[in-house]
Design a protein around this nucleic acid. Sequence first.
DNA 1: GCTGATCAACCGACCAGTCGGTATCCTACC
DNA 2: GGTAGGATACCGACTGGTCGGTTGATCAGC
Lengths: 217, 217
Amino acid sequence: MARNASRAPSAVRSRDAAAEPEPVRRRLLSEATRLFAERGFEGTSVQEIVTAAGVTKGAMYHYFDSKDDLLHEIYGRVLRMQMERLLMFADGPGTVTERLHAAAADVVMTSVANLDDSKIFFRSMHQLAPETYKSVRAERRRYHERFRDLVAEGQREGVFRSDVPADIVVDFFFGSVHHLGTWYHADGPLSGAELGAYFADLLLRSIAPEPAEAGGS
Amino acid sequence: MARNASRAPSAVRSRDAAAEPEPVRRRLLSEATRLFAERGFEGTSVQEIVTAAGVTKGAMYHYFDSKDDLLHEIYGRVLRMQMERLLMFADGPGTVTERLHAAAADVVMTSVANLDDSKIFFRSMHQLAPETYKSVRAERRRYHERFRDLVAEGQREGVFRSDVPADIVVDFFFGSVHHLGTWYHADGPLSGAELGAYFADLLLRSIAPEPAEAGGS
DNA sequence: GCTGATCAACCGACCAGTCGGTATCCTACC
DNA sequence: GGTAGGATACCGACTGGTCGGTTGATCAGC
């Protein structure tokens, strides 16, 4: 399994660390990510991936069960990272408005920082085997639910409007986030942080309560 | 024998329109749309498409230059329809707020009414040949630009906030729209019209100017 | 000298596109 | 009103090539 993936056998193994900055498994993952983002999952052959990583198919099938498994691993990494960061903000300090703003801006920033992952996610997810596909969707759903709970919390407190279901707000917002891969360019005039600020701002404004508007229940 | 697939030709060709509800070309397009949405472009073989349409490959290559061309035709139909509807609202009567709201709600409704097209669009666009890809993107850009001009018009009039660039507002909104295909289900509790109303409302609110807040120019 | 890591050659399945052929219809001229 | 001749619509076997995955051999470190 992923035995050597995490820890570098510092001493003898690869004596010159610079010669092989990434172990084979990791190199396969990052090259596959790049190629899948560029040409799609079906448009990339296993041969292209292993050539890019400087190994042969035998090495790839030593570390991964299948091409499908490779894609699944890419998804797993992204999902774990995003969930971890969301929890950090959602369960952190501050008002619900501040926490939602921070989480929203953060997911935009990490999405543009890992734009290849964003491109792959929705373009290739349906290529996974049905079972794998389901597990990825389930994890994705858990993420959305935590985000939705944050919105619902603000609605209960009365700091967000309640006349739009929290689920719809979340789908609305994440549609925008997930589509960054189709138009954002890192070499454009807009940094990830700036874009995150804009997006978080648009989200918060769209669910801000009416300031005047007499009435309530 | 696929001869019996379409009953008509025996007597008087297909003067009786009901005998063959869809001509071959149209049947190929609609079956291809369904299958591309279900399995992706690369995941669908030409053989599967023609079998579903009840014809053979010869028929498909009689009407289309290539598998690529088939996808291009699907895109062309969608793009023409959407642009036509956008212009109807954007150049129609009403205040800029009313026109933007109507256009936004409409594009959501037509997207869920043709959900297969939505699914295909961003999942398979990059599979097109480079030249075809460019022309589709160019037409898509023209659509976005018209929408952006509508937002910019409201900003100039002062009925929308100007502290978020109109381009970003449009990318934000269309991200949400384009992702409907990944989560919306026609048999869910939410009709296309309801969803359109919610989305258009979220958009309009996100760019509504500060009501109180002394000072704006 | 065993074990995990990696290689190179290979295989069966599949796929987009081609091509020679057939059936039906349209037009025009007799 | 019969028919020749061209055009249109469609068939289905075939081809050249690619792809995911397998296998037996080899290499390097303990």
